[in-house]
């Protein structure tokens, strides 16, 4: 017989609150000398494989106001579609690329920025290749449980059109909320809307 058996309950989530930077990006809020550098601030430690890209954007609330206190984390494959983690069994990921980044939005403008690489394609559960994408996790004051979404690329039209996640979304008119816009050579824009018109698709996964 098959059954799911969570025998313990997951620890309930609570908001990261307005002072999340103290714990996750202390140098951003002027706490220097405890951690040499903020964790996740640099995703590249040397010459990396593939195309280096920059992603910038903002996170807006249901009134359209830009969040100044939001923190984003991303997790992605390297240019060859491999994850830099011991759980990766398909090969060895680029050792100079961590695949994980964390950025606090600018405390004045609300802009966030990741300097990363364009990810390769990773298989879905059934083996079909997913389009290049980045997993995104968003926490802030007022967010009771971190929000998961995905960032895809508008210059990957063919891969996007066959992506196992994008194609199963019932409300196809919302798919563009998951797609970063190319704004120049190696630069993309990805704005997130928490609520209301053009609300970003968030996943329970």
């Amino acid at each position: 017989m098959t059954r799911r058996y969570p025998i313990l309950k997951e620890t309930p989530s609570q908001t990261a609150g307005p002072y999340v930077h103290i714990g996750m990006n202390p140098n951003v809020t002027g706490i220097h000398g405890v951690y040499e550098a903020d964790l996740g601030a640099a995703m590249k430690t040397g010459a990396v494989h593939g195309e280096e890209i920059t992603i910038t954007g903002t996170v807006a609330d249901g009134m359209g106001s830009i969040l100044k206190d939001v923190v984003l984390e991303i997790w992605q494959a390297d240019a060859d579609g491999l994850f830099n983690t011991p759980g990766e069994t398909r090969g060895t990921a680029d050792p100079e690329f961590s695949g994980w980044g964390r950025a606090a939005a600018d405390l004045q403008t609300g802009q966030y920025r990741f300097d990363t690489v364009k990810p390769g394609r990773v298989p879905w559960r059934d083996g079909r290749l997913q389009a290049p994408h980045i997993s995104v996790w968003i926490v802030a004051r007022g967010i009771n449980i971190g929000l998961h979404t995905r960032l895809y690329f508008d210059d990957e039209g063919e891969a996007n059109s066959e992506d196992p996640v994008l194609t199963r979304i019932e409300h196809q008119h919302r798919v563009p909320t998951l797609i970063a816009q190319k704004t120049g050579d190696g630069t993309y824009r990805f704005d997130i809307r928490l609520q209301g018109e053009n609300e970003t698709i968030f996943f329970d996964m």
Binding site: T15, G40, D61, G62, M63, S65, L67, W75, Q76, A77, F83, N84, T85, G87, E88, S98, G99, W100, V122, P123, W124, R125, Q130, H133, S135, A140, R141, G142, I143, N144, L147, H148, V165, I169, R174, L194, Q195, G196, E199, T200, I201, F202, F203, D204, M205
Partner: peptide, 24 residues
């Protein structure tokens, strides 16, 4: 603060795949 920062559409349920089952 949760009033304007909470998604109004339901979360889209997906099973986890490699990218969610791995991490830093």
């Amino acid at each position: 603060t949760s009033v304007m920062r909470s998604p109004s559409a339901p979360l889209l349920s997906l099973p986890t795949s490699l990218g969610e089952e791995t991490g830093p």
